[in-house]
Design a protein around this nucleic acid. Structure first.
Length: 442
RNA sequence: GGAGAGCUGACCGAGUGGCCGAAGGUGCCUGAUUCGAAAUCAGGUGUAGUGAAAGCUACCAAGGGUUCGAAUCCCUUGCUCUCCGCCA
């Protein structure tokens, strides 16, 4: 009787171990700059141990196979001797193999923690303050009245039931009501239409996935605390549709001609926000469940191609913000702020007048990343190149819209003195022609 | 949830203990033939680890067991299909 392992066998690993051996210094720098908790030398020594053990086992196995082939041809007299030796080899292997398995496991655990190498243009830094602003687009509105934050506005409009859900669903829960719910549908549909028009294929993927999808996309093992687990079925709720979208091609060998593949996924996203207790508890900035339209691209493993795709994804998100008439800025994230697998990340921060004690602030609403072959290696996604060889395609992703967070700048920037909201023109058709949202008369 | 059938290489499909990393076919590649193509003929054609190389090792859904030796026998799990039940 054996319990199914709650982990999957890693078919491929992050950076090629051969690359690690030959470029230890570059990897060490990435570990340091990305502030990853990993001892590369420990990994290299486990690797050495593993290869030595492997060599010994393979020698024994070779002999085992040799004996097995000799026995049928052997004479009656030779046979008992060979069988004896076969037994001895078998016993020796039975001793070596568990040790090998243990070493291999240690090796794989460490390999899953190896970061990808940041691109040269990524600024080296520790925290948010080291991100480098690239441009500001649009002008924050100057209100000649006391502006309300989104909590006040949404309450005024009856867009949210704040208290009910907290009683039966816990902290950071909410229910979008009336125009609040309609707005979420409107902005997500606007985002979807924008992306489809730009050639992305719409996907509605599963939001409950197996562990391998989480590991394959790089969210596990380090982000395990952040995911909701459905233990009875060994499934996890995804924090972004990036997980099922990338996993859509796990174990596939893609045809080079099929690239780039560009997906637009929509899903509910679930995050425990385990490291954020007490942070942003007021309002809808940080919640456990939200809706997100996400862009995911698979492209040829070529830095130039990837860069082009990256800026296209960024452009798509900016186009959506332009339609919503929300001022924003774009920053490139420093090494300390980009994830394990990301080689480059841009953050798009929307202007939220109610943040920073009503003085306003730019806060993240989009995150645009290139991951190189980090995810395709882990997910065993390959591409057959024209010359017949196999390679790992690059993956990229970017938010298109995440609600209700996006409702914060949307409502706050477009508010009027009387608490009404003038909807951006592009949104009007999605709200069935309504141009101004009036506060609910109580 | 109950009962049954199945899972072999890019695909189809053979294979009930050693001669099987795996017949045969299809597809694909190369060459011959052709003005060119089709047809035909010949050869080649999985992935990964390790090694300078020759080679060696692993992989027939996954994991475990039996055996000197497992694609082949046994157990467990997963997935697919069929029937029954339940159901938006």
């Amino acid at each position: 009787m054996q319990i199914a392992p709650f982990s999957f066998k890693v078919p491929a690993v992050m950076l090629d171990i051969a690359f690690l051996r030959q470029n230890a210094d570059a990897v060490r720098a990435a570990i340091k700059n990305k502030r990853v908790d990993l001892d590369l030398d420990a990994l290299l020594s486990v690797d050495k141990e593993r290869r030595e053990a492997l060599l010994e086992i393979e020698k024994k196995r070779a002999r085992k196979n040799e004996i097995a082939q000799l026995i049928p041809k052997a004479t009656k007299e030779e046979r008992p001797t060979l069988i004896e030796e076969g037994k001895a080899v078998k016993v020796a292997l039975e001793q070596l193999e568990p040790t090998m398995a243990e070493t291999q496991k240690r090796f794989e655990d460490l390999m899953l923690r190896v970061p990808s190498l940041p691109r040269p243009e990524v600024p080296i830094g520790a925290g948010e303050e080291d991100n480098v602003e690239i441009r500001k687009v649009g002008t924050p509105p100057a209100f000649d009245f006391k502006a309300k934050d989104h909590v006040e506005l949404m309450t005024l409009h009856g867009m949210v039931n704040w208290d009910g859900p907290r009683k039966y669903a816990g902290g950071r829960s909410y229910a979008l009501m009336g125009t609040g719910a309609l707005l979420e549908l409107a902005v997500t549909r606007l985002a979807v239409d924008t992306l489809v028009e730009r050639g992305l294929t719409m996907v509605i993927p599963p939001v409950m996935v197996k562990e391998r999808a989480m590991t394959g996309t790089g969210f596990f093992p380090l982000g395990r605390e952040e995911a909701y687990a459905i233990t009875a079925d060994e499934l996890f709720l995804v924090g972004t549709s990036e997980v099922p979208l990338v996993s859509l091609h796990c174990d596939d060998t893609l045809d080079a001609a099929s690239l780039p593949i560009r997906y637009a996924g929509i899903s509910n996203c679930f995050r425990r926000e385990a490291g954020a207790y007490g942070k942003d508890t007021k309002g809808l900035y940080r919640v456990h469940q939200f809706t997100k339209v996400e862009q995911v691209v698979f492209c040829m493993p070529d830095e130039e191609v990837a860069e082009k795709e990256h800026y296209q994804l960024l452009g798509n998100a900016e186009a959506i913000l332009a339609k919503l008439e929300i001022p924003y800025r774009v920053a490139i994230a420093c090494t300390g702020e980009i994830g394990l697998g990301q080689t480059r990340k841009h953050e798009v921060e929307s202007w939220m007048p109610g943040r920073n004690d009503g003085k306003g602030a730019y806060n993240e609403t989009h995150s645009c990343s290139t991951l190189g072959d980090f995810q395709s290696r882990r997910s065993n996604i390959r591409v057959r190149l024209p010359d017949g060889t196999l390679a790992y395609p690059y993956t990229l992703n970017n938010t298109a819209i995440a609600s209700p967070r996006i409702l914060i700048p949307l409502l706050e920037n477009h508010q009027n003195a009387d608490g009404s909201i003038t909807l951006p023109k592009a949104l009007v058709p999605y709200m069935n022609g309504v141009t101004v949202l009036k506060p609910k008369v109580v």
